[in-house]
Design a protein around this nucleic acid. Structure first.
Lengths: 149, 149
DNA sequence: ACAATCGGGACCAAACAGGTCCTGTATCGG
DNA sequence: CCGATACAGGACCTGTTTGGTCCCGATTGT
């Protein structure tokens, strides 16, 4: 159903939270402030640190700090950091595992779709998302495709 | 990982196949021609028929026919037909189930992202996908986000 | 009337993701 | 120099989701 993992959702929350802190925060502290189990937050932060979206400081009085301002972080980067590369189907480039790749007449055809989605996600920053909520608390989704039509 | 279901992949293959047939075909016949188990193809066709992407003809000598030319079928429609509404997170509009919705500072913020993805998917037709494969058999993915960077 | 074919739902099994825990390593403070 | 703090990385278990199968009812042509 084209759904991204909950971890990614957590990641966004954590990053926004980290932005509000404007400094260093430990994972237990962050976890408590956003209401997500600590081990899970730790896992998310590790993934984010791996991609440089947050900076980690080890040792006593260590913690995590935002690696970049929110408006320079594309949502796609967060998704990649937490969920891995963005590819709608398993049939991308040298994808192994598609048992009937030889028969499959669709090999490689998803690429333009993948690119389109990647672009859409790359052009939306976390700051954009944060801004959206200010306007309306819960605007009805565009619903172009939600309805049966 | 932002992956859409395999059923959707099947649906695209089936639709393209149905386009090649240029007429009526039964689900067993289609299944055989694309190398996908028959019951699964039947399930996919049912879903597609429900959204009008294919027309079903019941009774003896019945079958399925393409409801519209390929270039008038957006990939988003196929996804919706098979996988349901396109919503990256469970936190859309009146989503129930987000236990900590009250605490969650991100309520509704995914909407612009969802819209962006929906637009990207709505602007790509099945004909576009079919055209893509003609150009290059397996072009390396743009890789903008695939790499660790 | 019979056979072919779609329609819809129930059901089972395998895969995946979410979540937890444990051990190792680096850094700061006393 | 030693202990405490906090990240790093991986193993592991469990619940949910998804893929796939099957069955029965409804419809239509011969």
């Amino acid at each position: 159903m084209l759904r991204l993992s909950r971890l990614t959702d957590y990641a966004v929350v954590v990053l926004v939270r980290l932005n509000a802190v404007q400094g260093v925060a430990t994972s237990p502290v962050i976890a408590a402030s956003v209401g997500i189990p600590e081990p899970t937050v730790a896992k998310v932060l590790k993934a984010l640190a791996g991609q440089g979206l947050v900076t980690s400081i080890r040792g006593a009085h260590g913690g995590y700090r935002l690696g970049r301002p929110l408006n320079e972080i594309a949502i796609s980067e967060v998704i990649v950091a937490v969920d891995g590369p963005i590819a709608l189907t398993s049939c991308v480039d040298g994808a192994v595992g598609c048992d009937s790749l030889a028969l499959c007449p669709m090999a490689g055809r998803w690429d333009p779709v993948n690119d389109a989605v990647r672009n859409a996600l790359a052009n939306t920053s976390l700051a954009d998302m944060a801004a959206a909520v200010r306007r309306a608390p819960r605007p009805p989704v565009t619903a172009s495709f939600n309805e049966v039509a």
